[in-house]
Design a protein around this nucleic acid. Structure first.
Lengths: 212, 212, 212, 212
DNA sequence: TATGAATGAGGGTTCATTCAT
DNA sequence: GATGAATGAACCCTCATTCAT
């Protein structure tokens, strides 16, 4: 195969390459500002090629979401089920896992993007909410309930507590992909964002300890 | 007030009316999806008029941010200085005030929008960070330090704790302007988002109590 | 107003100019092959301007049809109502009128275009059929029935006769805008197509005479 | 026939299969709206294959016309030569034959398509005119002249009469492939279009009878 | 021969921006 | 100042055509 080859035939890997490129571009510029040609060029193809695999820009976006977001959750759920340590330790493990799999990866940028674009893609927002947000909440709720049942935590309202526990994660995600990029936005402490999350978790877990 | 006077006056308030309209439109649809004509119509003028006061759409966005954000903080700062109750109560008062002044207003939507658009408007993000985020952090840091000095809180790392305390506020902002609009996104608890914030604060304040 | 004026403001006449240009272009090239920019240039504007007055290319097409086709019919109907000569003479007058108003004008080319494009625009075809074809048939049917009632014509089946009477007109339309343009397509006789139509009509009217 | 033989044979008929498929597709959708891939799929081959036999889409169209049209006429001509009944009956036989061989077949749709596309394919229109239209006219002219010579018809101008006699056929063709598909376009009478043609012919033949 | 992945010019449509009135 | 008709660059998407396999 000579260098003059205009393109390579790679039907089986193309979709993946395009989605990878799309993920990067979307995270970098947002949905509207990303041109199909940007994605194509980043994937090493020309502007028509993505349309061989995806109906339109929006479908590319959805495919990226599906590819990146749902799998992560399953891993955490599996971990939760086979865990036999304390609820406190399980929650800490959640945070560490999540940070490695999502928070510190482009996947996290996508999550931020979705929240930024809900107004333009209500359908997508709904999908993400159902497939990712709700299951994540339920997972944490179960740990919380178990901890309360076993006397490890005191009895707190589940709903609001779950949201309070998850808030720092979402906040960190947003932050990493917004103000963290400006001058001073990444504080000394945030050079290890996972550390911040674990510190925060500790703080909240203290608040969950049974009062004497 | 004569007709002539009213028109005279109109001339001076025009830019403000345009910015008000722009705020609403931007928050509702995002920067890209907002058409200049939308803004103009919402401001009661025609397509070309905004260009008499602003160089282009981007400048309108910047002006909206500058106009809207700075004022809010001063009130909270004033409250902080003249407060003589417990640090705990002051923090609770902060949250309530903030929710009323910012969180539940278009101003909050703008904050979310800025986070969504940081990549496209780094300069603007920097401005917002310097003028709003940093002062807010410092204010909370002061209360925290005071509380620790007075033995009301135990000695915790200031930086990370401040961020942990502020995270739920920003999270709530994001949420209100993203998933709150999808089916199920607004849970029963969230019908009173301020309640969620106060509950969360209580949880964290418990964690700040000195251990015996 | 200097020569340097990039464009003229002519809100009230623009739509008409665009439709005129569109008629010419559509007749010349067909719907698909006509570019919006062709229409715009022919109308002396740039490609964005037509969209100030029409939603899209298809709407321009429909507007052209409405503007050109329906009015013609009304004139013929008016003529029919106030006519008091013989049915035979009325039919001859129809043909002459129609040729002047439709057959020999760009409007006739449009009629041909519609038939050519029915597959692509069923909705438009339906519109044209309802608004133009059916009324024209009814008009001729009435004359025929009157002629039979008054003993001027013998009793023939109305439906098929109407279609046979109209066929040469439609045929002439199609012909003028198709094969008439090729070498030899315009026969000596056809240099006066209206003559052909009237001769044909005479032939058919002879067939309608009561047999003795 | 072995498998090998069948494949061998396949090679020879491929172009024909492609033209058959193209005929159907062109008639159904028109030239522009027919995608090469549609043709290929209908022919049971893939996208690139037609290009092994034809230079481009336009050449396929031309080939379709050349292949399809010429054969039809010969049969009618043969019939004309060996006919020894009345000219009137011969004309009736012509019409019936034509409707069966052309009018009611895709071949008729192609004729309509050519008329629709003359502007885009003048060369093709010329070919069709020379090879099909002119011979058909001459054939009818001969019958007419014979009928006049034998006193069966009165002396009418040949050219215009031929065109008048052929007009309903072309009209029917146009109609079948345009308005016949809309609501109401196919009238009760038209459920048997050949009937309409024969009725019309009778009408005209009455007009051709010698006046006493 | 045949395939079908890839190309890339082309065209419809949008909308920020301009400027004669 | 204000208007709003007009501009024209930009972008999404299509599909005839190519060519490595």
């Amino acid at each position: 195969m000579t260098n003059a080859t205009r393109w390579q035939r790679k039907k089986d890997v193309r979709p993946g390459e395009i989605l990878d490129a799309a993920l990067t571009q979307f995270v970098e510029k947002g949905f509207r500002a990303t041109k199909l040609e940007d994605i194509a060029r980043a994937a090493g193809v020309t502007k028509g090629t993505p349309y061989l695999y995806f109906a339109n820009k929006e479908e590319i976006f959805k495919a990226v979401v599906r590819e990146t977001q749902v799998a992560n959750l399953s891993k955490l759920q599996a971990m939760s089920q086979q865990y036999d340590g304390s609820s406190r330790e399980l929650l800490r493990a959640f945070v560490e896992q999540w940070w490695q799999q999502v928070g510190a990866t482009p996947s996290g940028g996508l999550c931020k993007l979705i929240m930024a674009e809900t107004a333009n893609f209500p359908e997508l927002a709904q999908f993400y909410f159902n497939e990712v947000i709700l299951p994540a909440r339920q997972m944490v709720a179960q740990v919380l309930e178990r901890g309360i049942a076993q006397g490890e935590f005191r009895a707190v309202p589940i709903d609001t507590t779950v949201e309070t526990l998850l808030a720092p994660l979402i906040h960190q995600l947003i932050w990493t992909h917004s103000f963290a990029t400006v001058q001073g936005g990444r504080s000394a402490a945030e050079n290890d964002p996972c550390r911040v999350l674990l510190d925060g978790l500790d703080l909240m877990l203290n608040g969950l300890l049974p009062r004497d």
